[in-house]
Design a protein around this nucleic acid. Sequence first.
DNA 1: AGCGATGTTCGCCG
DNA 2: TCGGCGAACATCGC
Length: 276
Amino acid sequence: MPELPEVENYRRFFERHALDRAVASVACRDRLVVGTLGRADLDRAVAGRAFRSTRRHGKYLFAEAAAGSRRGTDSVWVVFHFGMTGFFESLSAGEPDPPYTRVLFRFRDAGALAFVCPRRFGRVAWIRRPEDLIASKRLGPDPLDPALDSGMLRRALGTRRGAIKAHLLDQTALAGVGNLYADEALFQSGIHPRASAATLRASEWRRLERALDRVLRTAVRTAEAPRRFPRGWLFERRRAGEPCPRCGGRLASAIVGGRTTFFCSRHQRLRRRLKR
DNA sequence: AGCGATGTTCGCCG
DNA sequence: TCGGCGAACATCGC
């Protein structure tokens, strides 16, 4: 389920299983998955190097592969995007590749890291610097960047017209929020997904920002251990007609920003209807 | 058998 | 230029 919280956990998984291991070879099993984000010749660029650090921006994960023993100036970076169904698996020596392995990083110690992606919307490539990818995709700020203050959300989205949910999903406005967590943050802040971003009040921006921060941080913690989402969340009740876990209203569904959207018809009211 | 899916991108239209 | 919409991408699972 790769939105920001899942990718953050993939980053931690990568750190646990791939950091400080020397790469012996890289096998690219799928030409659709490899290359479009950057260069495709992963084996030539990465073999002989070791992974030394990671970084995440929105739904993109970056792994630094350095030739020396330290993070260095001659590094290359492998970039991962997990699409809808991508994830990592760590393989011990001799363990067979899981089904749908698209890229396999084999380590000198004979273990391996598999990039697995059944539906092939995931992408892997190598680039010189993470900033290049962030710039070329025009990614907006990452909502968990500790350097960002409480005005971040309003600055990123506040001048826009049209449905707030569509802008939460726009990776060039804000990087990392996907369909489920956009719905969750709006649900918890009591804002209708079709509310116009340009007409949100200061109190609504504050509620939305607090909710988004809480939702993403809680989801990171939930995803790292097999654990359920808190009661009172929309997350596991995404079905129209179900009772709202917060107010007892009815959950409704609609298409907003091109995606299936669930919200509570009672506590997420539309103040000013958008022309349609 | 048909439909929808946690994502991204492109083209068309107003 | 922006925003809305639909389609395409590929494949699986309900």
